[in-house]
């Protein structure tokens, strides 16, 4: 009987020890995460303190809805654009393709996401071949409700239609062309201005993903 009690006590102690080790380990990770974005060597615009984002769920080209909170633990590069954009969007996504491939397609750690600012013309169906033409892992998102405006406001993104023809659908959209980095906590941490060399993004992600 005494032996059984001792074993139970030992068991409790073991569980306690494991819990303490897990907690210490988690604290260590959190500390590292903080330090990564405090590195003065990062080449994107670092936002301090991290900007908390409201959770959102948009229709996605994966076939399942994309919910931000479901991707905590992953780093997300997010870009606002539109499928018929003649210049900024294809250029930026060609750069992001290089970024992703240079990093050996870290599918589990990094998501590259295209949010359309043109839900009138872009559907999940026609966004799928568009995003996948750059890389099969790239994800297109669409929302035609107020959630899109809310999300754009949180990022400080603007998009303005500019008519270029007679047809109601003949327009271009002047829009913010930055790539935004969302960290593993779902917070906005960095912004890459249009024209950032893809090697600079690779450089930063090698640092950021190391701690993810």
């Amino acid at each position: 009987m005494r032996y059984v009690r001792s074993s139970v006590k030992l068991g409790y102690l073991l569980v306690l020890l494991i819990a303490v080790l897990v907690a210490v380990s988690a604290c260590g990770t959190a500390g590292q995460a903080k330090n990564v974005f405090e590195s003065s060597d990062l080449r994107g615009a670092v936002i301090n303190p991290p900007r908390q984002l409201t959770d959102f769920t948009f229709a996605s080209t994966t076939g399942d809805p994309f919910q931000l909170s479901q991707h905590h633990g992953q780093t997300i590069l997010l870009y606002f654009g539109y499928r018929s954009c003649p210049d900024f969007c294809p250029t930026t996504f060609a750069e992001l393709k290089q970024v992703y491939e240079k990093l050996n397609s870290p599918k589990d750690k990094l998501k590259i996401v295209f949010v359309t600012v043109d839900p009138d013309r872009d559907t999940v169906e026609n966004l799928t071949p568009y995003t996948q033409a750059f890389n099969q892992d790239f994800i297109g998102l669409r929302d035609d409700g107020p959630a899109l405006k809310t999300l754009m406001d949180e990022f400080g993104v603007v998009a303005t239609k500019r008519q270029v023809g007679d047809s109601a659908l003949s327009y271009l959209i002047d829009h913010t062309a930055s790539v935004f980095l969302i960290d593993e906590n779902g917070d906005l941490r960095m912004q890459y201005l249009y024209g950032t060399d893809y090697r600079d993004i690779v450089h930063d992600l090698q640092i950021v993903l190391q701690q993810a």
Binding site: S40, D41, L42, R43, G44, A45, V46, I47, N48, P49, R51, F155, G156, V157, T176, S178, Q191, L193, Y194, G195, D197, D200
Partner: peptide, 18 residues
């Protein structure tokens, strides 16, 4: 190009002319 929220600080290091 920067949208800076109240209380935020942004820090951008430029590595190429722009």
């Amino acid at each position: 190009p920067f949208s800076i929220r109240a209380g935020e600080t942004i820090r951008q290091k430029f590595t190429i002319p722009n």
